[in-house]
Design a protein around this nucleic acid. Structure first.
Length: 730
DNA sequence: GCAGCGTGCTTCTAGACAGCATGTC
DNA sequence: CTAGAAGCACGCTGC
């Protein structure tokens, strides 16, 4: 089918033809024929990179042309940004909503297309964003994640809620290939399009002793070094391609990149700039190591990297300057970063109890990254066999194996507790019968139709729990959220987290930073740091001094000493951060990367906020000190910098510099004036700051500093992110 | 006596969603 | 269960 013949708006057609897209790929063709333009539901289960996004995009434009509004649900923030950029500039207005990125709520709904993470959509539903009622098409990207143990239930409930609100809503679900697409399609009342077709040929093989064995031929790999994994890389690079290597630990990723960098011997100098930028921005050993690798044309990628470092690596690879990335699973499901050859070096992954094979679906996900459309003649995915019998075995377990089936996670009590609370607080259900009726519309019920299921018992038990926890009132068979329950639902915290916090607050302990933080680190919403052997002593020394400040008390016995120590270690990291310990020191002390600090801080800020709101209900005298702690942890500052941090453009580094120069309040800055501040802050920032403090800024003509109107592009929430670059670069 | 190397033992291990307030020159 | 890389202490070897 030709693009010009499609019933889609002109600007979109043009954006395709400009990019050289003139005809649809076969699976896209089939999707169009299945009736997406007539409002039919669709499950499109086709390989990575075979054009799923365009299918959804065409349908969205068509919907908007007919007066509709679209919601595009993704699993990751990075993906939300990617899709936002993808959809922008083609004639429709696009917005993004994720936890750290959004347009102000009311304006968000003015867009034709809103891209959001599943949790954000759930949160918007809980907070009753009115515009959600206007959605006529919802696209569910990576919908196989319904089967994910930790987040699948959320996605499933969100879909069910949206369909409940508007039974006419069109649903387009996109997925990599799954074992049971029929079941998912059945639940969604969707047409099913499956295909193995790919725009670039994908060859999957197993490497063993100098050769890649494909199903009907082999390929010799020159032995340039003693390492097989490296040889596979060098081979691809020698013929002008790029390589993605998946390994199972951060240490392995770093070690591989170092080895690759030393062997690559590139002549180009285009890397210098990226390497220099990383090096200049790096305030940690990790960053400096990365810079050295990048200089050699190789990079590693994992969640310990600072955001800026990740972007440098991704951009450098896209531009072709970086030839190889060794990565933990961060890149497997994340951004679209294709490479000619994908090497799945480690197919075993550590889990408590031993090494476990990665799922087939995850292998397919990684393999699917091989081959860049229009750029590579073909893509290769290579598993490395470590012993003779793996040569055959890996073919069977991965290459020829069908992907896993997707099953509902909606019968898990822990997931249901939170979702049932939200059903009741938002009025989806007003009785136990209602709750069960709603659950009947889920994929879980669809999968268990005609079979005995335990969902009713689970629901009853969960409702009992919520009533006992005073989050729900039950009167004459009617269920209603209490003030407390409503708050918990809207704060989007796990009810168990809320209970733990409220238990802590109700004891009315004397306020202590340590007490609050440790309490949060004990909740299921906070993932704690890994505990190494030497950490026991490290943590114990801290406890010896400050155990009196704990709100939870030191547990008796040795039942869960490890869990407790993990929480205390995480508490220590957060305290260090709020006491202005440098990221370099924190990384060294806790064996983490800057990205880890950011993640821990972000989660902690969210939970501290929730705690202060809960304190308002249960222990009002604690609300204010907790709110103050929230600001301190958010920015990573001691109490004395609180007045300065209120100014925009001032983060932990600049505030500290001003304070040390004797300027401790906005009034001081106003009195000092732009001229005196410029040496400390730079002229531009100085002007901005003085303007905010109420001073005159005659020196600067363009004082467009005060407050911007509605931003055209999404704004990043003010977080302490800027502090992660270490030194400021303005 | 000591640098350099090999051996064997110990240690360690991926990722990442979510809140909020909102009027105005 | 289905592991393997890196770091380290130690001891041997060769000069």
């Amino acid at each position: 089918m030709k693009v010009i013949d499609l019933p889609i708006p002109e600007p979109l057609k043009k954006s395709y033809t400009v990019r050289g897209i003139e005809a649809l790929y076969p699976p896209q063709d089939e999707a169009v024929r299945s009736g997406i333009f007539e409002g039919k539901n669709l499950l499109c289960a086709i390989p990575t990179a075979s054009g799923k996004t365009i299918v959804a995009e065409m349908a969205m434009h068509r919907q908007v042309a007919e007066g509709g509004k679209c919601l595009y649900i993704v699993p990751l923030r990075a993906l939300a940004t990617e899709k936002y950029e993808d959809f922008s500039g083609k004639g429709l207005s696009v917005g993004v909503a994720t936890g750290d990125l959004d347009r102000r709520d009311a304006y968000l709904g003015r867009n034709d297309i809103v891209v959001a993470t599943s949790e954000k959509v759930d949160s918007l539903l809980r907070n009753k964003a009115q515009w959600l009622a206007e959605i006529t098409l919802v696209v569910v990207d990576e919908c196989h994640l319904i089967g994910s143990e930790d987040r699948g239930a959320t996605l499933e409930m969100v879909i069910a809620k949206l369909r409940h609100n508007n039974p006419q809503i069109q649903v387009i679900a996109l997925s990599a290939t799954v074992g049971n697409p029929g079941a998912l399609a059945g639940w969604l009342d969707a047409e099913l399009v499956t295909s193995e077709w790919r725009p670039v040929d994908l060859r999957e093989g197993v490497y063993w002793q100098g050769q890649i064995h494909f199903d009907n031929h082999t390929r010799k790999i020159p032995a340039g070094s003693k390492d097989d994994d490296l040889n596979l890389c060098l081979d691809t690079i020698a013929e002008g391609g790029q390589c993605l290597v998946f390994v199972n630990s951060r240490r392995n990723a770093e070690a591989f990149a170092k080895r690759a960098a030393s062997k690559l011997k590139l002549s180009e100098t285009t890397l210098e700039s990226a390497a220099d930028r990383i090096d200049r921005g790096a305030s940690t050993e990790l960053g400096r190591t990365l810079a050295r690798c990048v200089k050699g044309g190789a990079a590693f990628h994992h969640a310990g990297l600072a955001a800026a470092e990740r972007h440098e690596v991704e951009d450098g690879f896209r531009k072709g300057a970086i030839k190889v990335i060794s990565s933990t699973p961060t890149l497997a499901a994340g951004l679209n970063l294709p490479a000619r050859r994908v090497i799945v070096r480690d197919y075993l992954r550590f889990s408590q109890g031993g090494m476990v094979r990665i799922p087939v679906g995850e292998y397919k996900q990684m393999a699917g990254r091989a081959g860049r459309p229009h750029l590579d003649p073909y893509g290769e995915a290579v598993l490395i066999a470590k012993r003779e019998n793996d040569r055959e075995g890996l073919f069977e377990t991965y290459i020829e194996a069908p992907p896993e089936e997707v099953h509902s996670q909606c019968n898990a009590e822990n997931a249901l507790r939170s979702h049932i609370l939200s059903l009741i607080t938002t009025g989806f259900a007003r009785s136990r019968t209602d709750v069960l009726a709603f659950m009947e519309t889920t994929f879980y019920a669809y999968e268990h139709q005609g079979r005995r299921s335990t969902i009713q018992e689970t629901v009853e038990r969960v409702v009992d729990d919520l009533v006992a926890a005073e989050m729900i009132d039950e009167l004459d068979g009617w269920l209603e959220g209490t003030k407390y329950g409503n708050l918990v639902s809207r704060l989007y915290i796990d009810p168990r987290t809320a209970e733990a916090i409220v238990d802590g607050l109700r004891q009315r302990p004397p306020y202590a930073d340590v007490g609050v933080l440790e309490l949060l680190c004990e909740t299921p919403d906070m993932l704690t740091l890994f505990l190494r052997k030497d950490d026991y002593e490290f943590v114990d020394r801290f406890l010896a001094e400050r155990r009196d400040e704990l709100w939870t008390g030191v547990p008796y016995g040795y039942d869960d000493l490890e869990g407790f120590f993990q929480s205390v270690k995480t508490t220590m990291l957060l305290l260090n951060w709020a006491e202005e310990v440098t990221d370099e020191m924190i990384c060294e002390r806790f064996n983490v990367g800057p990205g880890d600090i950011h993640n821990k801080v972000e989660t902690a800020v969210w939970l501290i906020h929730a705690t202060s709101r809960l304190a308002h209900l249960f222990s009002p005298e604690l609300e204010e000190p907790i709110a103050e702690l929230e600001i301190r942890v958010k920015h990573g500052i001691k109490r004395e910098l609180l007045p300065l941090i209120k100014l925009r453009g001032i983060g932990r580094v600049r505030a500290r510099r001003l304070f040390n120069a004797g300027l401790t309040t906005p009034e001081d800055l106003k009195a000092a004036g732009v001229r005196k501040l410029s040496p400390v802050l730079g002229e531009k920032i100085a002007a901005r700051v003085v303007a905010q403090a109420g001073g005159k800024v005659e020196e600067i003509p363009d004082a467009e500093t005060v407050d911007e109107p509605i931003p055209e592009t999404p704004v990043e929430h003010q977080t302490s992110l800027s502090a992660f670059g270490g030194t400021e670069n303005e």
